[in-house]
Design a binder for these strands. Sequence first.
DNA 1: ACAAGTCACTTGCAAAATGCAAGTTAAAAC
DNA 2: GTTTTAACTTGCATTTTGCAAGTGACTTGT
Lengths: 130, 130
Amino acid sequence: MLGDRWSLLIIRDMMLLGAHTFKEFLGSYEGIATNILANRLRRLEAYGIIRTERDPSDGRKLIYQLTSKGIDLAPVLAEMVLWAGRHEKTKNQALIRLMQNDKQLFLEGIRQRWAQNKTHSAAPRGRIRG
Amino acid sequence: MLGDRWSLLIIRDMMLLGAHTFKEFLGSYEGIATNILANRLRRLEAYGIIRTERDPSDGRKLIYQLTSKGIDLAPVLAEMVLWAGRHEKTKNQALIRLMQNDKQLFLEGIRQRWAQNKTHSAAPRGRIRG
DNA sequence: ACAAGTCACTTGCAAAATGCAAGTTAAAAC
DNA sequence: GTTTTAACTTGCATTTTGCAAGTGACTTGT
């Protein structure tokens, strides 16, 4: 279900970088092709991990949001980031230290940033500051 | 690095089912092809996640073991199993309840089962009992 | 001692997934 | 009302995956 090259990276970009439009996912430095991205977004939606909404202030844009099922992947992503920080050369050591020092607080932060989705209001903006 | 269909499943089988030979990985119900399995095992070894040893009691067999880097993936796998248990129909609810009730104890269990690797003695045997 | 397994692969080929470049469509912006 | 922008789709080449059938070293059974 998440066993491909891109799905978890897309979710990571939503959680950690606050990405929620097609273009923002494309910009994320790994360079996914547009057809693959479109396909993965549809799959993630079919799995109930993300949902889609039109941007009320710009009819061209779609806003991708994590569902509660998607938000529940935060601990998985957090552990992956910690593991990579421990064993691979990685930038963003600040984020990793933040997560090490208070994992619960970090997870709460993600949940709060995305919790609004349930009430159907606007998506959270911005990236997490290390 | 782990962004493919099989790598994390192989690691899961090592951690949760105690698999450590080529044949045991093949038996694991998902049905990986032999050429892909051989390729993934080599990649995981190249990444330093597993290591390989000859079985001293049977020269045909190779024993695959998790390195400390591989053991450190236990929290990632644990969170994945918990997530799947929460959101997907899954068997092995006993294991999931065990993990929910005491995640730390569960992780300690995995670490102890595999810690012997550092001292170059025999690999741990058997699966985790829910 | 020797034939018949077993184990851990490799090889060849077909099928599927991925990647790349160039559209397309609807909605802003100028 | 022409040009941009956002979110895709399409066609085709390349890469990865999967399947079936070997292969070679080692062990088992007689």
